Computed example of a mutant assay.
Amino acid sequence: MMRVLIITNKDDITVDFVVKELQRKEMPYYRLNTEDIPNNVSVFFDFNNNIFEIFDKVKEERFSLLNFNSVYYRRPQLNNLNFIENINSYELNYLRSELNFILEGIYKLLENKKWLNNVYRIREAENKIYQLQIAKKVGFRIPNSLISNQYNNIVKFYEENDKNCIIKPVKSGYLPNDEGSKAIFTTKVDEENFNNPARLESFPLYLQNNTPKEFDIRVIVIGEKVFAAEIHSQKYEDSSIDWRRGIMSLEHYEHKLPIGIERKCIDLTHKLKLNFSAIDLIYTDKGEYIFLEINPNGQWAWIEKRLKFPLSREIVNLLENG
């Protein structure tokens, strides 16, 4: 029987959709909430006898990592280890580092399994510098883009783009804090930011021109299947630059991509060695499609819920059939 390993955390609602579909198909699976290691999930790696097991203490079930066929890597988290007493912060950081490398070892043990997206391909594809290069190669139009901490070149770029630019993170845009994490949204550049050259030169900025748009498009690619959703972000000021600020209140509609753009989405996904991706495009008032970025592990559950796209079904089909 097909056995699927899901690597995530307890709060990952998106995985619930996949679990429901796995249960519907009666496919054996195990959801490894990685923050349960080591207090609720123990590990047993016997190298001499080639035994690599995890034991769920709550379910009282034992799983051999070598017996899984497919892996869905989603949102792992490290245990905060607050149940361990009488250790200082340095010791705590050391233990969390060791725990992280145990997880990395698990990923290596699973390397030859069928992954929806291999964790190392995800990490590579998350770099937006690399994304833009590959997107251009497959034929996407991209915004004018600059990464620099050279003051004169930053000012020149800003002026050449009619003083209408945005700033964004090079990677995912989530900042860990005591409550979990804080999202760093794409933001319009204020001209007052240029009053402090030393600050601008202290760290590289990722700037793009702020392209006028009719609406945003979130494209979900699963294997050779493509699903596109219009997100009408321009209705409200707070979502006009970054639609994630107002996702729940924005109107969503199914969007039919031109065959050429659909093919580019598939080609980009495959050139990044991914089987799944969430691609953000904008549709301009001139009817043009502009590539913004690709998230190799992006959210999709809200789109399935709102537009009834069979995304979880297609993900499970891919996990089942490769």
Rank of each mutant, 00 (worst) to 15 (best):
I37N: 02
L92M: 06
D242K: 02
E262Y: 04
Q299E: 15
W115L: 09
M1I: 13
L319I: 03
F157Q: 10
G298T: 05
L66Q: 06
F45T: 03
R74P: 08
E191Q: 05
Y283R: 05
L132D: 00
I241T: 12
E35Y: 09
F276A: 09
P204H: 11
I102S: 01
V43K: 02
L81G: 05
R75T: 14
S181M: 13
R31M: 02
L5N: 10
L103M: 13
P28K: 04
N210H: 11
D190L: 11
Q208C: 08
L99I: 09
L268T: 04
A198S: 15
L95P: 03
Y94E: 10
R306N: 09
V41G: 01
P76N: 03
L109S: 00
E230C: 15
L92D: 06
T34D: 02
H232A: 13
P38K: 14
E262H: 01
E237I: 11
I102F: 12
R75V: 09
I217P: 03
S249A: 12
Y151H: 03
W115E: 05
N196M: 01
R141F: 14
D56I: 00
I247N: 12
F63T: 05
W243C: 05
A198F: 06
D178R: 13
L132G: 08
F291K: 08
